[in-house]
Amino acid sequence: MADGTPRLYLVYLDADATPRPAPELAELAPGLYLVRTARSRSQVYHALKRRFAPRRLLVAPLDGDPKFKGVRPGALAWLRATGDRDA
């Protein structure tokens, strides 16, 4: 976002491209991630596209914290630790 406020994005990145663990990134399942960053959707999309050259890529902003079940352990703790809202 232009004002520097961190925003939450849902990212799908094909399984051939696997990002290294990073504080702003949480893997929910193979290829499915949450990203909290002050970057715009376009900046996140193009950074991932350049770095991993994926066959499939989706970057979608989320208005609030998502609900989920059956994802990698620690995802909810990451969401709570990086956000201002209750999950």
Rank of each mutant, 00 (worst) to 15 (best):
R20A: 12
R20P: 03
R20Y: 03
L25K: 09
L25V: 12
A26G: 10
A26T: 03
A26M: 12
P30F: 00
P30Q: 02
L32S: 03
L32M: 08
L32N: 01
L32P: 05
Y33R: 06
R36V: 10
R36S: 05
R36Y: 01
T37H: 12
R39L: 07
S40N: 00
S40T: 14
S40R: 11
S40W: 01
R41M: 10
R41S: 10
R41W: 01
R41F: 04
S42H: 12
S42I: 03
Q43K: 08
V44Y: 02
H46G: 11
H46K: 09
A47E: 13
L48I: 06
K49S: 12
K49N: 13
K49A: 13
R50T: 15
R50M: 12
F52S: 07
A53C: 15
A53Y: 14
P54Q: 00
P54V: 08
R55C: 13
R56M: 06
R56P: 04
R56C: 00
L58F: 09
L62G: 10
L62R: 05
D63R: 15
D63M: 12
G64P: 00
G64F: 06
D65P: 05
P66E: 08
K67I: 14
F68C: 09
F68Y: 05
K69S: 07
G70C: 11
G70P: 12
